[in-house]
């Protein structure tokens, strides 16, 4: 069966006052119906831009995108603005990082929810409102029939994110892009929202692209994981495979920096240094200035994304030989036992 969403060699470039900036550099992945794909990486690695490009939500005047974004075989990068509007919010929906600012302060949430229905369905206002109420109940907003007339500022952050989720799912989309949906929320609310997303994903059968910098969220929710670093994909595998046999030093760094309750450590491991500037990325492997395993070849040659031997689907982009990777990964897993439990 053909995948629902196929991203092929996606490249997105912004023209900035400081020169061209390659925000996404040759990213490819597939999303199957009902699958949850995690995209992990530090701030500014291009994971949000990848998704905004899929949605066609980048500023058109300063952005150029190449490659292909095939949704049911239709290339969204070449689709007309009208066709994109038909797809957005209907077949592909999106929720954003900050629920405090993502809802319009001057409209009631009922109005904002029904707007989403009326843009795509030929129904009466009343029917749209009934659908809105249905979704508010589905995302478990207490006393939904009364709260539907309230304004965003009358809701807490977690409740607003529930409203955002309700709005995204109101037209039963095939794909939901969740751009760090829990980052701006406190820890207990985070857990509730993730639980809700998982539940709704099963109920609605929606495929989810989960953008996050939190490997804990990935372990909790995802089927497949794409690890991005400095606009490129550095590792791509199933979630169990990534946590059992991580093959890229950057992924090791991310796993080493996870806080754990069942291990006694003085302080958390961190990846030294800063992510490189996308205006002027380093030669060779972009991770080499921060990588503890740097070899001469890393400074010269960009490592291609290649299969990692082992039988299951697993791609990685690192010059280290597979044996060294297996050894280092095993060492890391020993020291962080318990993380991979998903």
């Amino acid at each position: 069966m053909a995948p629902l969403l196929e991203v092929k060699d996606l490249r997105t470039r912004f023209s900035t006052d400081d020169g061209p900036l390659q925000a996404v550099d040759g990213v490819s992945f597939n999303v199957e119906p009902g699958q949850v794909l995690g995209i992990v990486g530090e701030s500014g690695c291009g994971k949000s831009v990848t998704c905004l490009t899929i949605m066609g939500l980048n500023d058109k005047r300063s952005t150029t995108s190449t490659g292909e974004v095939l949704f049911r075989g239709e290339d969204l990068l070449r689709a007309s603005p009208k066709r994109l509007r038909e797809i957005r919010g209907n077949e592909i929906a999106m929720i954003f990082q900050d629920p405090m600012t993502s809802l319009n302060p001057v409209h009631t949430i009922g109005k904002q929810l029904t707007e989403a229905v009326l843009l795509h369905r030929d129904v009466s206002r009343k029917q749209a409102a009934a659908r809105a109420l249905e979704l508010l109940e589905a995302v478990r907003i207490p006393r939904a029939e009364r709260r539907i007339g309230d304004y965003p500022h009358q809701f807490s952050g977690g409740m607003r994110q529930r409203v955002m989720i309700a709005m995204a799912l109101i037209n039963s989309p095939d794909v939901l892009i969740a751009d760090e949906p829990t980052t701006a929320l406190d820890v207990t609310t985070q857990a509730q929202i993730l639980e809700l997303l998982k539940q709704l994903q099963q109920d609605f059968g929606t495929a989810i692209i989960m953008i996050t910098h939190d490997l804990g969220v990935v372990a909790e929710t995802c089927d497949d994981v794409v690890v991005m670093y400095s606009a490129k994909v550095v590792e791509h595998a199933e979630v169990d495979e990534i946590f059992e046999r991580p093959a890229h030093p950057y992924t090791w760094g991310l796993m080493g920096s996870l806080p754990r309750l069942n291990a006694i450590v003085d302080r958390l491991q961190q990846i030294p240094g800063q992510p490189p500037s996308l205006l002027n990325p380093p030669r060779g492997c972009r991770f080499h200035p921060r990588c503890p395993y740097t070899m001469a070849v890393c400074k010269e040659k960009v490592p291609p994304l290649e299969p990692h031997p082992g039988g299951v689907f697993h791609e990685q982009a690192c010059h280290l030989d597979p044996a060294t990777k297996e050894r280092e990964a095993a060492k890391l897993l020993e020291s962080v036992a318990g993380v991979g439990a998903s």
Partner: peptide, 9 residues
């Protein structure tokens, strides 16, 4: 929220 509106289509 303007981006949200566009994301709604």
């Amino acid at each position: 929220y303007v981006r949200t509106a566009r994301a709604k289509g």
